[in-house]
Design a protein around this nucleic acid. Structure first.
Length: 562
RNA sequence: GUCCCUGUAGCUCAGGUGGAUAGAGCAUUUGCCUUCUAAGCAAAGGGUCGCACGUUCGAAUCGUGCCAGGGACACCA
């Protein structure tokens, strides 16, 4: 499924269908659709069709016999339509596959395209500039970012990069929940620690924050405000502790993400978006539409009208809002900003929350499919073979900062992307540290570095790469590598369909493997054989371009030396 | 109880829309640097694809039912 070849493949498919229908007019409407696929074994050709297997029943003939009858029809069709030049041969293999073998010439077109497009190779016009927003991390500013956030950050950032690359206009947003009860508790916790500085005793509230960072913050707060006595401290209004806490922690979070190579386009604040006026506005809107009702003194949203399994409270009997209510206002705001597609990345604990938010989106008059919620499973951190329970409040967690410091940004990011987002990740810190050199990211980056090393040698040897007119690359390792490079944008398409950058991480490992094999089997630079060297040097650089493009999309560095 | 995710080699995991002999890495064993980076390559061993039915030319993949592990099901956030 090569990008360059996908058109060719479609053409071939159409050709096959027409020729078979012409040959068997009686089966015009019953013939199964022609499907071409890429066989896993290269001996089976570049494309394979199962049409003889599929239509065996229809024709009441064994697949092998049927394939034998189809073969001359197909060959004639190829001749008539000038595809003969691209297809070297067609053959039948048990149990009835019809396999197509391409001439190398077709594959050389991939190399030419790579050099023409260079850093843009792999791009697609798929997105048609559709405005997409992807909101992720959005951790409450009540502590440093955890490993769960780290994984979400790596995934969200890579996914946004990919979407932008294939033609969407994708904005990355961090939503700061600076309004809720948790923020109040954070302020109270800071005050308690501040009281302790002066030798006083204070009980951190239930569900308060006990991590060591709270104590540090208390000391900074005292220093900033030049508070030297307990009396002065008591005079400080409670909300100032919260405000300080949010400001301080958001700076920490911002710095952590920057260092993790995750850059947001927008930092939006709950306190500015989900204002009382906006919340009342959205409730009025829902009320007018008849989606709200009162029961037991509370105000309920009829989310069951939109597929939720029970209705949800939006305004509690004490007059305050539930968590859902400001969130509806926030999502209304997203659509008001003209985003056509809205993607949220959440942890698995929010799984049950999806139906009610989708219901809200639909109640607001939007297509429920326009909201896409991705659940990224947690990463369990193992230290010395033991899982560490994660609790921000008790202050027991491994932070993003710690992981970055211990295993490095590239390794950490790649580790989080190495698995499908919907599967749980085991992250053994000791193992990750100890086996840093065996981390697949180094395997990929090493391939990239090798390309540059070969280029240095090529300059010394005064060998110039070719950029077109290839004809000497014909070994298995060379052709396999070219084919692999050619499937880059198909992988990006897969990432888009699954909204998961995992496939790209896996693909880059495959490219690196194909490159290392090629490198090992064949001497690239040989002054005695200049023409061959020029073509192999081109293949080397083509691999370098694809590796670099892929690494950049995943937010990884592209070292030229290792 | 209901819903979601997971179950494949000793370990960690790949195996889009059903295909041909089930694939990597780690670990074990063994080869390959007087020539472009050995952070690499090649080879060997290692499998009841959780279990059972079903769908069909053909199932790790799809369906149903079990079994096991994890998670979610608030007028919490």
């Amino acid at each position: 499924m090569f990008f360059v070849l996908s058109e060719f493949m479609a053409k071939l498919q159409e050709q096959l269908e027409r020729s078979l229908k012409d040959a068997f007019p009686g089966y015009k409407n019953t013939l199964p659709p022609i499907e071409l696929e890429i066989p896993s074994e290269h001996q089976h050709g570049e494309f394979s069709s199962n049409i003889a297997l599929k239509s065996s029943k229809l024709f009441k003939k064994p697949p092998m016999v049927l394939a034998g009858e189809f073969l001359p029809i197909i060959e004639n069709a190829l001749n008539d339509n000038g595809l003969k030049e691209q297809i070297a041969s067609v053959s039948i293999k048990k149990p009835g596959f019809i396999n197509f073998y391409l001439t190398p010439k077709v594959l050389y077109g991939i190399l030419e395209q790579i050099f023409t497009e260079n850093k843009k190779f792999g791009r697609l016009a798929l997105g048609k500039h559709t405005k997409v927003q992807i909101e992720f991390v959005s951790a409450n500013p009540t502590g440093p970012l955890s490993v769960a956030h780290a994984r979400q950050a790596a995934v969200g950032d890579a996914l946004a990069n990919i979407l932008n690359f294939i033609g969407f206009e994708c904005a990355k947003e961090y939503y700061v929940n600076d309004g809720g009860i948790q923020i109040k508790k954070l302020g109270e916790s800071i005050k308690c620690r501040a009281v302790e500085v002066f030798g006083g005793t204070a009980q951190i509230p239930e569900d308060g924050y006990q991590g060591g960072y709270v104590k540090d913050m208390a000391e900074i707060f005292l220093a900033e405000n030049k508070i030297t006595t307990l009396k002065e401290l008591d005079a400080i209004e409670q909300h100032r502790f919260s405000e300080f806490g949010v400001r301080y922690l958001m700076e920490v979070i911002r710095k952590d993400l920057e260092d993790f190579n995750v850059h947001f386009d927008e930092w939006s604040y709950e306190s500015r978006i989900a204002t009382k006026a906006n919340i009342e506005g959205v409730l009025d809107y829902l009320g007018e539409k008849g989606f709200l009702y009162e029961k037991d003194g509370a105000l309920w949203f009829k989310s069951t009208d939109f597929g939720d399994d029970k209705d949800r409270v939006v305004e509690k009997s004490d007059g305050t809002y539930t968590y859902l209510t400001p969130d509806i206002a926030y999502h209304r705001n997203k659509y008001e900003r003209k985003f056509e597609k809205v993607i949220n990345i959440w942890g698995p604990d929010h799984h049950g929350y999806i139906p009610r938010l989708k219901a809200a989106v639909e109640a607001l008059g939007r297509d429920r499919e326009s909201l896409e919620v991705l659940i990224v499973q947690l990463a369990t951190i193992y230290r010395e073979g033991r899982p560490i329970s994660m609790s921000t409040r008790r202050g027991e967690f491994i932070s993003l900062r710690e992981v970055m410091d211990e295993v490095g940004v590239d390794a950490a990011r790649f580790f989080f992307l190495m698995r499908h987002i919907n599967v749980h990740l085991d992250f053994d810190l000791e193992l990750a540290k100890k086996e840093t050199s065996e981390n697949p990211v180094y395997y990929i980056q090493y391939a990239h570095a090798r390309v540059h090393s070969v280029n240095d040698k090529a300059r010394e040897a005064k060998i110039q790469m070719k950029k077109a007119g290839f004809q000497l690359l014909n070994t298995q390792e060379e052709l396999e590598l070219i084919k692999k490079l050619g499937s880059f944008s198909d992988i990006l398409l897969l990432c888009y369909k699954e909204l998961d950058p995992y496939a790209l991480a896996s693909y880059l490992q495959d490219v690196a493997t194909a490159f290392h094999k090629f490198y090992d089997c064949h001497r690239i630079l040989d002054p005695e054989r200049y023409d061959l060297s020029a073509e192999r040097l081109a293949l080397t650089n083509a691999a370098g371009i694809v590796l670099a493009n892929g690494l950049r999309l995943l937010g990884l560095s592209t070292p030229e030396k290792m």
